[in-house]
Design a protein around this nucleic acid. Structure first.
Lengths: 215, 215
DNA sequence: CGATTTTCTTGACGATTGACCAAATTTATT
DNA sequence: AATAAATTTGGTCAATCGTCAAGAAAATCG
């Protein structure tokens, strides 16, 4: 899972012993544990109201330990964002790989989409929050851009397979397709979080109507 | 311009004299003035780092006056958001009304689009920031949803006219069209703010290729 | 077991925040 | 001009922020 990318802070004595086996990435394991607490806090409160003390409270440690594992708040949040990425981009791969016809792929995709918007709405809103922060804070831009690309690829894999199962080619570019999906998802996520019970169903209906037109 | 919508706080003696002519909305005029300062601050710093003192510093007043015209920070920001709306949604109406053929409309639209993303990038990123905040803070949701609808209508007016000039009908729903435009704009705005000089040109190229396919 | 290192807690710091208020000032009314 | 009302100032308040350092606790090792 490319833990190496998460290690932006090194323990002081790391270079001394390179082959020390068991505790090699106990350090990084704890970083990931704290990053998870950070993600949970960010998803609940949003970037603007997330403090280090709140994050620590969601973990099993006190606030001081965050500065032992991370150089500062940016380091922690960037680590969280990178960790977040890995959990998202393979969400539909199983369906894409196993679906045997267009119907199966479409309905499998819409099911999974509905499930994630219902059960992980807070994580999705966090993504849109962080992407907006990247418009202001340059420190987030590389990570956000990379995640955007991963999501674009993910959407393209689904659409390519869908078109392929119909012997067609997608009628739009990968970036236009992702823009469309992303824009729709964002809109219906807001409706869902506003307690609109029809939001998920109508998003699925919109996509069910849209996909056959695209590929 | 429906200033009434901006008046969420009333002066104490307002009900006493209804027909008092000149100072009727001097109160609201100052609210708007402060809302403009708030918008400028939000566009520069983002929601997360915008404080009342920073806003006051961008105005010609001190921070205490904000609590004279607004009940609290939410009241001020909501007022700013409503004020923001009026400035955006008519941006392309002139071109839509005067264009005499598809080419003229398309190029006029793309010109205006390029101009606004270049000169008003900070205001655009503020919009995406506030829309993300609405995912967390219910107090923003009604205003954000209303603005989203206004923007959807704006995009639909352009597309309808464009299709009409070609004797066609738009091939997608208004919401799908807006989702597509919004998603693309958001992506290229990030690129533009990341000092990617090709961002605006490539956004225009993408849309130049896309519009003829839609209507 | 004792020594050493790693990990974690605790409390403090300077700065900043939104909110609030009394007094000073300006503007309008009589 | 005198009075009243509206507006603005500037300071205070309690709360909270990120950061840091000193030392307790736990783990590791000779």
């Amino acid at each position: 899972m490319a833990e190496q990318l998460l290690a932006t802070k090194m323990r002081k004595d790391a270079p001394a012993r390179r082959a020390a086996r068991p505790p090699v990435d106990k350090f990084n394991a704890r970083r990931v544990e704290l990053a998870e607490a950070a993600l949970a806090t960010l998803a609940e409160l949003g970037y603007a109201r997330t403090s280090l003390r709140e994050i620590a409270q969601k973990s099993e440690f006190t606030h001081g330990v965050l500065h032992y594992y991370f150089t500062d708040k940016f380091d922690l949040i960037c680590c969280s964002v990178r960790y977040y990425k890995a959990k998202c981009v393979t969400r539909y791969d199983q369906i894409t790989a196993t679906a045997r016809n267009r119907e199966e792929l479409l309905e499998g995709f819409l099911d999974k989409l509905g499930e994630t918007i219902r059960t992980e709405a807070h994580m999705h809103r966090l993504w849109y929050d962080l992407r907006a922060q990247a418009l202001f804070e340059g420190a987030f831009r590389d990570d956000v851009t990379a995640i955007d690309k991963s999501l674009e690829d993910m959407v393209w894999r689904i659409m390519s397979r869908y078109a392929d199962l119909g012997g067609k080619q997608p009628a739009v570019s990968p970036e236009a397709l992702y823009a469309l999906f992303d824009g729709l998802f964002q809109k219906y996520l807001l409706r869902h979080l506003s307690d609109d019970d029809r939001a998920v169903t109508e998003l699925q209906a919109e996509l069910r109507h849209l996909l056959p037109m695209i590929g």
